[in-house]
């Protein structure tokens, strides 16, 4: 499994919000286990998709100097299963937080306009350079923005 839980970024307002989506394919290997004979996108991978979108919002807002790492989930509520063939649309916005080294977010997901999940979480800001090269991150971001389409 490639641990890339965002397929496309469709809108971004620096330091404020980001929108993207993840599609769910029957060919994804984790579905063999979650669950046998009943494939459902794990709720934790929806959380991870939100955390990765938060990373891209931070990177794009800092000229690819920063990323964020999830370390606290305030709450998560799951309303509808995401199954193969679904596109999970995610809208994530930054929430006020009085700490320059941390971020807080609220994410809402939907499938075909129906509410999927609502998640509030916090993350720690870290330098992107220690995780991967800025050039590689910029290239990946361009792909997510549809540059190769």
């Amino acid at each position: 499994m490639r641990f890339l839980l965002v397929d496309r970024i469709v809108a971004l307002t620096p330091d404020t919000s980001i929108e993207g989506f993840k599609t769910v394919a029957m060919s994804e290997d984790y579905l063999e286990w979650h669950f046998p004979e009943r494939p459902i996108l794990p709720g934790m991978l929806i959380l991870e998709a939100c955390a990765q979108l938060a990373g891209w919002l931070e990177a794009a807002s800092s000229d690819f100097a920063h990323w964020v790492l999830l370390d606290h989930v305030r709450s998560a509520r799951y309303y509808k299963f995401a199954i193969p063939g679904d596109r999970v649309d995610i809208r994530l916005e930054r929430l006020p937080l009085d700490d320059p080294e941390r971020r807080a977010y609220r994410a809402e997901t939907s499938q075909d306009g129906q509410r999927g999940a609502a998640i509030e979480f916090e993350a720690r800001v870290i330098p992107l350079e220690g995780l991967e090269s800025g050039a590689r991150a910029r290239a990946a971001f361009a792909v997510l923005r549809g540059a190769s389409a």
């Binding site: 709720g43 999830l70 370390d71 606290h72 989930v73 305030r74 709450s75 998560a76 799951y78 299963f81």
Partner: peptide, 10 residues
Amino acid sequence: VLSVLEDVAL
């Protein structure tokens, strides 16, 4: 299946 989570530190 997971329904709700609250107060999670990771």
